[in-house]
Simulated scan of single mutants.
Amino acid sequence: MAVEVRAVVISARIGAGHDGAAAEVARRLRARGFAIDRHDYLDLLPGRLGQRLCDAYHRELEIAPGSWDWLLGALGRPPLAGMAKAASRLASPRLREVLDPMPDLVVSTYPLASQALGALRRRGELTAPLAVYLTDPSVHRLVVTEHADLHLAPNRHAAQAARRLGAPRVVVARPVVAPGFRPALPGERDRARRRFGLAGQERFALVVAGSWGVGEVEGITADVAATGAAQPVVVCGRNDALAQRLRRAGVPRVLGWVDDMPALLRACDVVVQNAGGLTTLEALASGLPVITYRSLPGHGRANARVLDEIGLVPAVPDAGALADALRSARSPGLPDGVDPAELLAALVGEAVEEVSAA
């Protein structure tokens, strides 16, 4: 793109998936000559409301995860869906600030940001093209806004669901994963194993539970170890208490926050996950098979159903089927689709053409 254009990308630090997708979208747009402003939707809410929302969601997953099934369902129906959409507009004053001067493109990777931006578009206060990137394989009502110019879906199932929920234009885009996540080159696997202290010929299952390390991680770890089909390597993310409990229980391979996930993935043989989030895509891009086991309630179970249906990631129903799944899992790689940055650049081009024609 010969002339630099400005894009505003808005995500949220709830987990790592929304921010991870936003970072990679931003990187790809920069490579095409865009100037990028990134913002966290939670910081645009009044006072400390955003951090309180993040903390409340985190506590719910830790203390009463089963309630998230009910809450996610309720948020998809009136009146709670309407209340959530109305509450999202509390960020409108700060959104107006970050959109001044008006950019050439706005991209949202977080549902409440999408709703707030859609409301600005409806009132004529957002005139730039608005794109929504769907970060999950399953699609909830709140992630779709009828006022967006484009929804980018990670698979055909998600695209169909978004259309049913009122998205006017949906395109299947290749999931955004940083370029470091790729199959190992000759010698890389052995070097990665030495770096992380993993014995040469054993089979290792990487147990992941998002950046917060939530869910039945201890049960998953015990069940994987009991199969004898693979040795668990557990990533606890920022959950230091979980890491301490696992180490006290004698689990030999426990990691906290890992800065070099591409190398750790190359050191392992299979990934066991419970939420269908960003690490799932990173593992598939790295050529590793992934299985879902003991899913998180709510979005975790919804994602597991979709990933299983479309043949990307099998959902293992119980401990009895786990050993077989660990031994037989194969990686299909990432789903095909157009590069999201190409679609977003084309969206800006369409807007320029419309203005020129007027």
Rank of each mutant, 00 (worst) to 15 (best):
V271Q: 09
G276M: 10
V270D: 00
L255Q: 03
W257N: 04
G276P: 11
V272M: 10
E282P: 08
P262I: 12
R266P: 02
T280H: 07
L284W: 03
L284E: 02
Q273E: 15
A263F: 02
N274V: 04
D269Q: 02
D269H: 13
D259Q: 14
A283W: 05
V272N: 10
W257P: 01
A285Y: 01
A285K: 01
V272G: 09
A283V: 09
T279N: 14
N274A: 11
L264H: 09
V272F: 11
M261A: 07
N274F: 01
L255E: 09
T279A: 15
W257E: 13
D260L: 04
A283F: 08
D260I: 12
A275F: 07
D269N: 04
P262Y: 03
T279W: 10
W257H: 15
V271W: 06
L278Y: 13
V271H: 04
N274P: 14
L278F: 14
E282V: 08
V272E: 01
V272K: 07
C268M: 02
A285R: 00
V270Q: 02
T279I: 14
Q273R: 00
P262K: 05
A263Y: 00
V272P: 05
A283N: 13
N274H: 13
A275N: 14
M261Q: 07
A285N: 07
L278S: 12
D260F: 10
N274E: 12
D259S: 15
V272R: 08
A263G: 02
V254R: 12
L284V: 10
T280D: 00
E282C: 05
L255R: 10
W257V: 14
M261D: 03
A275D: 14
L284F: 07
G277M: 12
L265N: 06
A285E: 01
N274R: 09
A275M: 14
